[in-house]
């Protein structure tokens, strides 16, 4: 079943075109890795899918779960089941994790026509999902990401993902800045949430993360286009040979 279908997507930041015709189809149950040199448009792709106001879509189409994604404001995309694990999670002083998460969960429920979750059910869910990423109990009472270490911030992203149970999660360099133990915890969380109905896009520079989160498909994004698509072995080749051979194939070197 097609979960996400991106057709000839073009997007700008200011006057500069970053995405120059991306085509990508993701089925439920799949994990797709997106790799590529710096500046190729990987983070732009995730920002455009989540509706960041910093980017303008100039042409193309994105169908998510049968709906036109690009017409929706960011909050509706999230409520429909898109989730982005930020490369740089934002600190929000004064807004507690509990309050933040409760608002997010209940706004989604409202969108789905459900009643707000009771306080006790919510706290129970929070406790349970926190354990999944071994997040300290105290973190829940602190302000969102404020004073969190790099590893805690990334684990907190996966915790939020576990709370919101998205259909499509986009992990934008979730491995950057993580030590081996934290990487293992994050990957464990992601794998635990993986099922036949949902899918993930894993954006990374390194094969290492893909040892833990094994992709079904690997794409190379280069100069705003997907220039190569293969199985998980492509990541190993890239790790060994870098990107020059692809650039050569494209006549860029």
């Amino acid at each position: 079943m097609k979960l996400l279908e991106i057709k000839d997507l073009h997007a700008n930041i200011g006057d500069k075109e970053i995405l120059k015709g991306v085509n990508l189809t993701i089925n439920a149950g799949e994990v797709h890795a997106v790799m590529g040199p710096n500046g190729s448009g990987k983070s732009t792709l995730s920002a455009v899918l989540t509706g960041s106001p910093a980017y303008t879509v100039t042409s193309g189409e994105v169908i998510f779960n049968g709906k036109n994604l690009l017409e929706m404001p960011p909050e509706d995309r999230a409520r429909e089941g898109i989730f982005l694990s930020f490369q740089y999670p934002v600190e929000i002083p004064g807004v507690s994790m509990v309050n933040f998460m409760r608002t997010a969960v209940n706004e989604k429920r409202k969108y789905q026509g459900l009643d707000p979750m009771s306080a006790s059910d919510f706290l129970k869910l929070m406790r349970e999902r926190k354990e999944l990423v071994e997040l300290d109990n105290k973190l829940a009472n602190r302000s969102v990401n404020e004073g969190f270490s790099g590893g805690e911030k990334k684990r907190n992203e996966i915790f939020q993902m576990a709370m919101l149970e998205p259909k499509l999660s986009i992990l934008d360099e979730t491995d950057s800045g993580l030590d081996i133990d934290a990487l293992r915890i994050v990957a464990k969380g992601v794998n635990h949430l993986r099922n036949a109905e949902n899918a993930s896009i894993v954006i990374t520079h390194y094969q290492r993360l893909l040892d833990y989160i094994v992709p079904d498909v690997v794409h190379v994004l280069y100069k705003g286009r997907i220039v190569k698509t293969a199985g998980k072995e492509l990541a190993l080749t890239l790790e060994e040979k870098g990107y020059d051979w692809i650039k050569k194939e494209l006549g860029d070197l």
Partner: peptide, 20 residues
């Protein structure tokens, strides 16, 4: 934007920030 990307509406996100 971070809050909206979690499903919190623009109005509610502004509210949380102002209260904070």
């Amino acid at each position: 934007f971070y809050m909206r990307s979690r499903g919190i509406s623009l109005t509610e996100a502004r509210m949380l920030l102002m209260l904070a």
